[in-house]
Design a binder for these strands. Sequence first.
DNA 1: AATGAATGAGGATTCATTCAT
DNA 2: TATGAATGAATCCTCATTCAT
Lengths: 215, 215, 215, 215
Amino acid sequence: MGAVKNKRMPRAVREQQMLDAAVRTFGQRGYRAASMDEIADLAGVSKPLVYLYLNSKEDLFTACIRREAKALTDAVRAGVRPGIPADRQLWEGLRAFFTHTAENPDGWAVLHLQARTHGEPFAAEVLAMREELVVFVTQLIVVAAREAHRDPSLPEREVAGLAEALVGAAESLAAWANAAPGISAKQAAATLMNFAWSGLGNMMEGRPWSPPPQD
Amino acid sequence: MGAVKNKRMPRAVREQQMLDAAVRTFGQRGYRAASMDEIADLAGVSKPLVYLYLNSKEDLFTACIRREAKALTDAVRAGVRPGIPADRQLWEGLRAFFTHTAENPDGWAVLHLQARTHGEPFAAEVLAMREELVVFVTQLIVVAAREAHRDPSLPEREVAGLAEALVGAAESLAAWANAAPGISAKQAAATLMNFAWSGLGNMMEGRPWSPPPQD
Amino acid sequence: MGAVKNKRMPRAVREQQMLDAAVRTFGQRGYRAASMDEIADLAGVSKPLVYLYLNSKEDLFTACIRREAKALTDAVRAGVRPGIPADRQLWEGLRAFFTHTAENPDGWAVLHLQARTHGEPFAAEVLAMREELVVFVTQLIVVAAREAHRDPSLPEREVAGLAEALVGAAESLAAWANAAPGISAKQAAATLMNFAWSGLGNMMEGRPWSPPPQD
Amino acid sequence: MGAVKNKRMPRAVREQQMLDAAVRTFGQRGYRAASMDEIADLAGVSKPLVYLYLNSKEDLFTACIRREAKALTDAVRAGVRPGIPADRQLWEGLRAFFTHTAENPDGWAVLHLQARTHGEPFAAEVLAMREELVVFVTQLIVVAAREAHRDPSLPEREVAGLAEALVGAAESLAAWANAAPGISAKQAAATLMNFAWSGLGNMMEGRPWSPPPQD
DNA sequence: AATGAATGAGGATTCATTCAT
DNA sequence: TATGAATGAATCCTCATTCAT
């Protein structure tokens, strides 16, 4: 069972142990199916202590989401060197993203699967993090357009949609790469770059795909 | 609430009412949080009748997944005219997909969010449907490559990754389009075509994006 | 399943089919664990028909007990030739008893196990049958005492206890013979005759076992 | 009703209270008819506490059986002085048996009626205890045969049958003595000794009852 | 003579949460 | 800092029983 039992430890340490146990349990069982009993057990403490430090199941789940969201955005940001060309920045960001999700499958499950499937307190929490990533990608697209000497006036709504699609594709690929054995973070990133950047590049050259007129 | 109460109806009809209620409840609350009580209420019948016809919560959820998965794949298939160029087929498929998910948000939530979040009986059920879509897309990519007079030997693994990315992006965009007001199915489809097809087109012209050598 | 379905049949026949199914189900599952659904199914009819003919679960169980009790006492009575010496009558009665219980294990289970474990409506029903057997045995003992030229004044209470013991032993041996493979009705009867009659005979010779004085 | 409510008590004490309540309820109502609600009420605790300590209805019933079986065999063993003649040992054992069953009617009902009536987890549990008693009696019979200077080769199968009959008769008489008012443990024991020992004694003298030749 | 449709009531089990120490 | 003892409130599921035809 989790940590060594009954040892007195400073609050900060205990809290992290609890969050570790909670992320693992929530990630594997889901919010409702995870029981405070199991979490406390896995953390090696009694239930009242969990309540003393984290207040309630809801608060505990929220704390998990926040911690994991921050860890993910931090990882992405830390993986990107500023000042290099936009496509390289995206490449680095994607690699960091896929690496982090592969190394923290439970945390990723909490963010991608569990937090979104349960009502309003939680979905908003994830949305905030997601927005950060979307903004990051959006800026890269805008910068890339500028670097390509293109008229920078790609309609904003269009850019938003593209960024959304890219982030969405990344999220799906992360789940896919975690599930399919033998897909490395690098491979996942390369696949997505091929898929996305070539398309985006194409568009920026002024050759978007266009729907048939009668539609 | 829900249907008219207490009227005797043939089993087949009642079953559909129950599935309607179940899809709505599961879609909005999630598998665990949805209660059989609420579902029976919404269907306008007593709980025992739900159990008589659908056996258990698990079976009921599975029946929901199957019905919605079939409805979705049927809609996509019905929306695509065979024989036309591959890019047009994809365009039509995406429009059908986004139209259907927009019209059946609860069904889509069941498939995309809820079914994947809960243990093995269910995830497999959705995976089967997803695989159908991935195969459909994969074939389009292969055909398109041939139509573009390209060496048809895009590595298989690469194609699988691209198809996965496209389906994943579509799934994410469906959720996005449902959430953001004023995004029509057509717009979502166009965004994704731009994102994906241009990129794929580019690749097929022999200009894939390539990672920097030192990576 | 059970009988052929949906065939119109006269009430008396249907009732017997239902009782057959009920005895089997009650005997194997117990009163509470047996469900009207299972019984109706096994009888090859719909539940409302069972209620139409037998009124309620309680009444159905009571009808089972009565039918099986009568069948058992009838079998014992039919197996005994009157007029022969008392020990022979007991021998024949026991053989008939063990034969019948071996051939109708479910009926015997209903009488011996199930009916006695559930509240007052049923226990009384079995008690009546049991009393008949006890009386039968009591008379045999009295007659035997007379045949042995003994002072016929064996205290009544004593005789009652002995009869009770004999019937109880028979009941236990019936269960034992049913469970242990290879014990025939005849063997069971012989064991009990040895056990009981020799003891009784001994007593009638005026040599009862007597407790130590200080007790 | 039952114990004083809401007082904090050590687990071991509470468990015994729960078992007390359970034995009483199971003994009077039967396994299926007894509700966990009633048991918890009678024990003066909430249902969850019963589940916390005893796990499930099945486990609770098993715990009852084990406790009562041990109590009964302990009582019988404690009541018998070793080293005295076999008939006296049997006498003492029977007195202890009837005394204990008279003092613990619910426990006896659980063992004799309820546990045997319900499926396999439980029947086996009682059988183990019963086997102990049968072995105890079997040994007494063998020793008695030796004490009577008889050829010790009473066929084993025969002895088993006799022991079974004796134990069965004892079980039945226990129920009878409990039901009939004014039958003391001593009287029940004496009746059975008369019934059994005289018979056995007779046999050991070489005068078994023999079936008529034509049978 | 017979059944498909339907339900009120209750029972086992689990869970988040608190109290007293 | 830490926990053993305890519960109110659901939740899934089953069953005997009835109604309308």
